[in-house]
């Protein structure tokens, strides 16, 4: 969680320095919910994170190195410059690379789980994350419904962060509470204070276990506030000040650190040391990645097919 926060702070400054060509989308304020998803998954499980899941990605096995490589366009990154920023993954390892169309990863995870079932594998869980805005899409509806029909071990986590880009929940859905949607699909619903790591770990633990035990899809809503813009290009001036001052606007990392000190599990000094340690790792890795080669257009094979015998060669003037 702390490492994800520090890494994202670095990405933000790299963005401002013009070192990243594409967009930067951060998960500040959502780390507790996200890391709880990744923490409860184990090797062999399936995870399709969304744009604010740096913490969950790292808990599932992603690294500072590959994150920086993908953002900075290193040829050595998992996407080799062909895709960037949050669109990274290693699908062979069950870690999927999101497309931008919201809700699209739900049926993908459902299909992967269906395949596991056909292959006779049991005890597998697939999790995917979405925002409140994503619940309005047709893909969300179709994917969750199909997963429910097949009673697949899918955990769908909604970060109800109060805004889809600039659009507030009041213009996004008309149900009193997002978890009300679950009943219509016949899936179990869970709700959690997304600013409280303890609660997130507890509720996600229950949801993942229920899915693992054959309870079918689990719908989890974490209530929180996005503490950054939609992307780093966005100053988020539309966010209601009252929300920022409400319990939803708490910084989950601060809440967590206060808890650790209060319980005497760590001192303020120790936490400060962890921060320095994380910063050193992030800074050193950045330096290394900045020296790595960019993809070379002349070396690119410009073929979208894996079966090269079907690649077309067009004559061009």
């Amino acid at each position: 969680m702390l490492l994800a926060r520090i890494l994202e702070e670095k990405l933000s400054s790299l963005y401002r320095a013009g070192a990243i060509k594409g967009g930067v989308f951060l998960g500040r304020g959502q780390e507790a919910l996200s890391v709880s998803v990744g923490s409860h998954l184990r090797k062999g499980d399936i995870f399709a994170p969304l744009i604010r899941d740096q913490a969950g990605r790292m808990a599932f096995g992603d690294t500072v190195l590959d994150t920086l490589r993908t953002y900075l366009g290193s040829q050595l990154g998992s996407m080799r410059g062909r895709d960037g920023n949050i669109h990274r993954g290693r699908p062979r390892e069950g870690y999927h690379a999101m497309i931008s169309h919201l809700g699209a990863m739900i049926p993908l995870v459902a299909g992967a789980l269906l395949a596991r079932r056909m292959k006779g594998e049991t005890g597998v869980v697939g999790a995917t994350c979405l925002g409140d805005g994503g619940t309005s899409t047709g893909a969300f509806h179709e994917g969750l419904n199909a997963a429910a029909v097949e009673k697949l071990p899918l955990v769908l986590v909604i970060a109800n962060n109060q805004y889809a880009y600039s659009t507030p929940g009041s213009r996004q859905f008309a149900c009193a509470n997002l978890i009300d949607k679950a009943a219509g699909y016949g899936v179990a619903a869970h709700q959690v204070d997304g600013t409280d790591l303890n609660e997130c770990l507890r509720v996600l633990g229950e949801a993942v276990q229920a899915a693992r035990n054959g309870g079918g899809p689990q719908f989890v809503v974490g209530n929180l506030l996005r503490l950054v813009g939609h992307g780093e290009h966005d100053d988020a001036s539309y966010v209601d000040t009252a929300l920022k001052e409400s319990p939803l606007g708490r910084d989950c990392l601060e809440v967590c650190e206060e808890f650790l000190v209060e319980k005497d599990w760590a001192t303020t000094k120790e936490i400060a040391d962890w921060r320095v340690e994380a910063k050193t790792e992030v800074d050193d890795t950045t330096t290394k990645v900045q020296r790595e080669p960019s993809p070379d257009p002349a070396e690119e094979d410009w073929t979208a097919l894996s079966e090269r015998r079907f690649a077309e060669e067009l004559s061009e003037a």
Partner: peptide, 12 residues
């Protein structure tokens, strides 16, 4: 949408 999405997941 879900039919194709699930096929992709299964193919992976």
């Amino acid at each position: 949408d879900a039919i194709v999405g699930m096929a992709i997941g299964a193919a992976i």
